[in-house]
């Protein structure tokens, strides 16, 4: 995998940070690559806007921060407004469709939307919406192996919540697979995660 910058953002309490941990852990610990995860701290991390950054690569990562994400995952309108301008042209935007209303976007941005909160509620726990998002992310980007992600989900949540979270992952993943299939059948170009080398 070439260097890929991901930002995940939403509001406090949605599990934004955990979703970034799961992705980073899967890519580095279980897939043998490299991942650097950072997060916003301070008052903004205790409610309000919350954001995590995750950089994945098959080589050691030097610069730790994300400035122009290849992939942006947003779970709130505020996060959408704040971070969408950073998204690269031809980048991927993944949104929680019931929480985010999409406006004008840069050319070539590929949008994938998922009713993650509703899917989580179908499992009886709204709080697992972040892991639904991770499952959906896995399916639509193909960036990180689904089994590696499942392992990372399993050991990143308290043991008694592992089963529920794995169900949430699968629910999001299946929704994503169906979505991609529908997109391909509709004749749209399939997205390939691409890397942007360091530009001076």
């Amino acid at each position: 995998m070439q260097l890929t910058e991901i930002r995940i953002a939403g509001f406090g309490g949605q599990g934004v940070i955990l979703s970034a941990i799961v992705i980073g852990k899967a890519a580095s610990v279980y897939e043998g690559g490299f991942a650097t995860m950072t997060q916003s701290f301070g008052p903004e991390a205790r409610g309000g806007a919350c954001s995590a950054q995750c950089i994945l690569s098959d080589a050691p990562i030097l610069y730790p921060y994300v400035s122009r994400p290849d992939i942006l995952v947003v779970m709130s309108q505020e996060a959408y407004a704040k971070f969408t301008p950073e998204l690269k042209e031809h980048g991927i935007l993944i949104v929680e469709e019931d929480l985010v209303r999409i406006g004008d976007l840069k050319p070539g941005v590929k949008v994938y939307s998922v009713p993650a909160t509703r899917l989580a509620e179908e499992l009886g726990k709204r709080m697992v919406l972040n892991i639904v998002m991770v499952g959906f992310f896995a399916a639509v980007t193909g960036l990180v192996d689904a089994d590696a992600l499942r392992k990372a989900v399993g050991d990143s949540v308290p043991p008694h919540f592992a089963e529920l979270n794995l169900k949430a992952f699968d629910k999001g993943f299946e929704y994503g697979v169906a979505k991609v299939k529908a997109t391909v059948e509709a004749g749209e170009v399939e997205f390939h995660a691409h890397a942007i080398p360091f530009a001076e």
Binding site: I21, A35, M37, T38
Partner: peptide
Amino acid sequence: ECVGHMTEK
């Protein structure tokens, strides 16, 4: 702070 709050393998 950067190294302290950065998560890696």
